[in-house]
């Protein structure tokens, strides 16, 4: 549970780590758009290349990046299979009884996998691995701050996110502790039918809720004691000024998008419809 790819910051001193988090959030959005612009072999190759460049820029070990992909392996495999067997095209490669595999299907499968993998690597490299959760929530608060004029509680949302990030490892540890305690009383979580298993969760969920509420109460008091009174008049220790160099990656991503569109128009290699 502790190794879920959530706020898995990887400390390093890389250009991506130093980049302004607000820029990184914008970059991420643009990068996602880019990945959906890809339509043919060359553009997907370019996209894959950009993902590799991102890993190099972030100086995160490839082992850790690949581990981040592990949870989606099943989805990757499933979409690949779906594409291979269900895409009908013109170039029939293989046929046996009702199974027909077309070249288009193979291409589509590869494209889909590259798209999902780059999406995860891209957002991971731009956000989770290279940005501390606090910097991330601060950045979101900044970027969304125009909404404050519309009375959207942007600061409160950012605060909630920070607290959630702080308490996720705690609560997962606690779940384990409570499970152990109930197992010691002979609770059985692994046998029986669906209803029985759901029932077996009650001795875990109730203590977990009680403890979460207690913690929330304690934390609220502690925050009040530390003079918390909402976002008004609050300052920040980390002030970020966007530097001119921070715009370079923005230009690069825009360039990437432009090249992708260009490659699509060029239409070299296999194209998706």
């Amino acid at each position: 549970m502790k190794s879920i790819a959530f706020g898995q910051f990887y400390p390093a001193n890389s250009p991506l780590h130093k980049l302004d988090p607000r820029i990184k959030v914008i970059l991420t959005v643009l990068y996602i758009v880019c990945s959906f612009l890809c339509k043919n072999l060359l553009s997907f190759a370019l996209l894959a290349l950009s993902a590799i460049l991102l890993i190099l820029c972030g100086r995160v070990p490839i082992r850790i990046v690949l581990r981040g992909l592990r949870p989606v392996l099943i989805i990757l495999a499933f979409t690949a299979l779906l594409n291979i067997f269900w895409t009908k095209g013109e170039q029939l490669l293989f046929a046996w009884k009702f199974i027909e595999i077309y070249a288009e299907g193979l291409y589509a499968a590869v494209f889909m996998m590259v798209r999902i993998a780059t999406l995860i690597i891209g957002t991971g490299m731009l956000l989770t691995y290279t940005t501390t959760p606090i910097a991330l929530t601060d950045a979101l608060e900044d970027l969304l701050s125009p909404l404050k004029k519309l009375k959207v509680p942007v600061h409160e949302f950012a605060m909630m996110m920070t607290i959630a990030l702080r308490f996720i490892p705690l609560l997962s540890e606690e779940t384990e502790k409570i499970m152990t305690a109930q197992k010691a009383r002979g609770a059985d979580f692994s046998s029986g039918g669906l209803i029985q298993r759901a029932k077996a969760l009650i001795p875990i969920l109730i203590p977990l809720f009680v403890s979460a509420f207690n913690r929330a109460g304690d934390l609220a008091t502690a925050m009040e004691c530390r003079c918390y009174h909402g976002g008004e008049g609050r300052t920040r220790m980390h002030v970020r000024h966007v530097r001119l160099v921070d715009f370079i990656p923005l230009l690069l991503v825009l360039l990437l998008g432009a090249s992708l569109i260009f490659l699509n128009v060029l239409g070299i290699g296999f194209s998706m419809k």
Partner: peptide, 29 residues
């Protein structure tokens, strides 16, 4: 300062947590 250390730390990084109070007081960065 309360009993349970886990229930009074707000931030996920030590220095950010220590900064929480002064930030609320509007102290310059």
């Amino acid at each position: 300062v309360f009993q349970n250390p886990d229930n009074q730390l707000v931030a996920t990084i030590v220095e950010d947590d220590v900064a929480f109070g002064p930030e609320n007081l509007g102290i310059p960065s």
